[in-house]
Computed example of a mutant assay.
Amino acid sequence: MTDTEELRADEIPAPFTARDAYNGAPEIPAETHAVLRLQVTSGDHAAPPEEVREYLLRHAALADRVAEESGDGDDQARAEKMGRALLDHDRRHGLKGSPYPPDHEIWTHRGPRAYTRQEYVTWHRPTA
């Protein structure tokens, strides 16, 4: 199947839940510290795209986890915004998502938080 082919409903695997995606992730305070450290090293996006991507991925995942835990509307909006930043970054730099790349039509339906979860699983558990 190519990136542009339509998916039939029975061909689309269920998206990762937050619980599945972040199983084994560092505790939120430790991850917050790591994200802040990455923010300093990736600067104002002048770092190499892969380095900026790690910051965006971990920041989006952290925001998603906080939103899931709190249920707060502002946290939900922040998680969407950070997921969108990751998705846009990957599209802009031609970085490949796994199994679905950032320009795949599935993200029109699932949204940026689902992309964040997919990519976090791939990054955090590369053999998943």
Score class of each variant (00 low, 15 high):
15 P>H: 05
97 G>S: 05
78 R>A: 13
89 H>S: 03
28 I>D: 15
67 A>V: 07
102 P>K: 08
84 R>H: 01
26 P>D: 12
71 G>M: 10
114 A>G: 01
102 P>V: 04
63 A>C: 15
113 R>I: 13
29 P>G: 07
39 Q>V: 00
20 D>C: 04
83 G>R: 14
39 Q>K: 06
98 S>V: 07
40 V>C: 04
10 D>I: 12
75 D>F: 01
124 H>E: 09
107 W>N: 02
13 P>T: 04
53 R>M: 01
40 V>N: 07
27 E>V: 08
20 D>N: 06
92 R>E: 11
12 I>N: 09
75 D>P: 03
20 D>K: 14
67 A>D: 13
64 D>Y: 14
85 A>G: 00
117 R>H: 12
9 A>N: 03
74 D>W: 11
123 W>H: 10
88 D>P: 01
88 D>S: 11
21 A>W: 11
44 D>P: 00
100 Y>S: 01
36 L>S: 11
46 A>Y: 02
98 S>R: 07
119 E>D: 08
62 L>N: 03
36 L>W: 15
81 K>P: 02
43 G>M: 09
36 L>R: 09
32 T>S: 11
90 D>C: 11
96 K>G: 06
42 S>C: 13
65 R>I: 09
105 E>L: 07
28 I>E: 15
63 A>Q: 15
50 E>M: 06
103 D>S: 10
47 A>V: 06
41 T>E: 14
96 K>N: 03
23 N>P: 00
26 P>Y: 03
104 H>Q: 04
80 E>T: 11
18 A>C: 08
58 R>M: 12
127 T>I: 04
51 E>Q: 14
109 H>S: 05
24 G>K: 00
13 P>L: 03
49 P>I: 00
31 E>K: 10
22 Y>E: 04
128 A>P: 05
50 E>D: 12
87 L>P: 02
122 T>I: 06
14 A>I: 01
96 K>D: 05
124 H>K: 11
120 Y>C: 01
67 A>T: 08
36 L>F: 15
19 R>T: 15
56 L>T: 02
84 R>D: 02
7 L>F: 12
46 A>L: 02
31 E>N: 09
93 H>G: 03
68 E>W: 15
118 Q>L: 01
27 E>P: 12
117 R>Y: 11
90 D>R: 05
96 K>C: 00
7 L>T: 01
25 A>D: 13
77 A>C: 09
24 G>Y: 01
46 A>H: 02
84 R>G: 00
72 D>R: 15
128 A>Y: 13
3 D>F: 02
95 L>F: 03
84 R>L: 01
120 Y>W: 12
56 L>M: 05
38 L>D: 06
123 W>T: 08
58 R>Q: 13
23 N>A: 14
32 T>F: 07
39 Q>L: 04
17 T>Y: 11
